[in-house]
Simulated assay, not measured.
Amino acid sequence: MTAFQDSFQTEVARLVRKQVKDDQAALKQSDRKQREEASALKQEVKSLSTQVRSLTKQLAKL
């Protein structure tokens, strides 16, 4: 019975490592996408702030 128990534990450990690896890959991909979105949003905010500042200056001249 010990041989069965050892092989069973080894198999369970292998499956758990595989599942954890897959889960980590999915989390890394999700994290990467969120970082890209955050970066794009920061750039857009910066661009819009520049436009607002420019338009404010133009309006002040009028």
Rank of each mutant, 00 (worst) to 15 (best):
M1I: 06
T2F: 13
A3T: 06
F4L: 09
F4E: 08
F4T: 09
Q5T: 13
D6A: 04
D6H: 03
S7R: 05
T10S: 15
T10M: 14
E11R: 07
V12M: 02
V12F: 01
V12R: 06
V12Y: 01
A13I: 05
R17G: 01
R17A: 03
K18L: 13
K18Y: 04
K18S: 10
Q19D: 00
V20S: 01
K21I: 02
D22R: 06
D22S: 09
D22Q: 11
A25T: 15
A25E: 09
A26I: 06
A26W: 03
A26S: 00
L27F: 12
L27V: 08
K28G: 11
Q29N: 00
S30M: 05
D31F: 07
D31Y: 12
R32Q: 14
R32S: 14
R32F: 14
K33I: 15
Q34A: 12
Q34R: 09
Q34E: 08
Q34Y: 06
Q34I: 11
R35H: 04
E36F: 02
E36G: 03
A38P: 00
A38I: 03
S39Y: 15
S39A: 12
S39N: 12
A40Q: 11
A40S: 05
L41S: 04
L41N: 08
L41K: 10
K42S: 04
K42N: 01
Q43L: 13
Q43P: 06
Q43D: 13
E44G: 01
V45Q: 05
V45D: 11
S47E: 11
S47G: 08
S47F: 12
L48V: 01
S49C: 06
T50N: 15
T50D: 15
Q51P: 02
Q51L: 06
V52I: 05
V52R: 09
V52Y: 03
R53Q: 13
R53P: 01
R53G: 02
R53T: 15
S54C: 07
S54R: 11
S54G: 11
S54Q: 14
L55Y: 10
T56M: 12
T56H: 10
Q58I: 07
L59P: 02
A60M: 09
A60H: 09
A60E: 08
K61G: 01
K61M: 07
L62C: 04
L62D: 06
